[in-house]
Design a binder for these strands. Structure first.
Lengths: 143, 143
DNA sequence: CCTACGATCTGAAGTGACTACAGACGCAAG
DNA sequence: CTTGCGTCTGTAGTCACTTCAGATCGTAGG
């Protein structure tokens, strides 16, 4: 058995994470330190699965601390036993909180979008002597 | 003339920025170093107006670099002259780019929201043996 | 044989926009 | 006298990476 697992570059390609990100996750303890062949990291299937989990969670906008918690829950889940419903309830709570945050951010961005789009329309109309965007930022309200 | 201008705390209250933020803006050159009375900063009306401009721009989501550019444009605008239309066109371009970015971020957040809400519904239903959220993060797709 | 290349390694520093903290100063009221 | 307030300076911490400098290794080409 010469080559067990894959190199970090291969893992990066497979996972869509960058090499530096993978090493960063290792440094902060999100990924375990993998096996080494000489000085090179070699990743097994479990490592790749864990990284894929992290990546999906990140794509949903979870913070790394939340990902850490979700990984712990996933581990408790996989360990089996009667914890199942508790695990799901905990995960649900975490996700619900995160969803609320996402919705708040959407709302904030939409308010920005509305004002920006409105101001830009008045800019494009070009009826004012001074720039409506600059004017409204300067606190000279539109008539 | 004993007391010219207002103290940093008063400016913070008036502007809605925190004291530390005001000093931070000064450090990075977004606000000019104000006059001093002894060791205390004293802000004049122009400073307050500039800070208000910054704050409104930040509320619309512009980055500090964009705010810097907008301030320069506002200055050029106030200087008067034939630059007016050019200034407005530049500001419009800046804002249009920013608006596109805001819309992209809204779209990304909405994708997250959709997936999160969907998964949470399946979680709440509680029909699966394992947690649907954990399962989907682990790459075990829903049936 | 020498060299260039690609992949990897380590450790440190930079990003954006603040926020927090430590420790000192000066002035007024109690 | 001491307490408290408001301010000062300077430094470091946050989040999730990204970038950089400089070293090391095996292999392929000339």
């Amino acid at each position: 058995m010469r080559e067990q697992g894959i190199a970090i570059g291969a893992l990066a390609r497979r996972s869509g994470c960058r090499i530096e990100t993978i090493r960063y996750y290792e440094r902060i303890g999100l990924l375990p330190a993998p096996a080494r062949q000489g000085r090179f990291r070699r990743y097994a299937g479990a490592d790749a699965a864990r990284l894929a989990f992290i990546r999906r969670a990140r794509e949903l906008g979870f913070t790394l601390d939340q990902v850490r918690a979700l990984l712990r829950l996933a581990g408790a889940d996989a360990a089996g036993g009667a914890g199942g419903p508790t695990v799901c309830a905990d995960a649900r709570e975490l996700a619900a909180e995160h969803l609320a945050g996402v919705r708040a951010r959407i709302a904030a961005l939409r308010r920005m979008e509305t004002v920006l789009a409105q101001t830009l329309r008045r800019c494009a109309a070009g009826e004012s002597p001074d720039c409506p965007l600059i004017a409204s930022l300067a606190g000279r309200p539109p008539p």
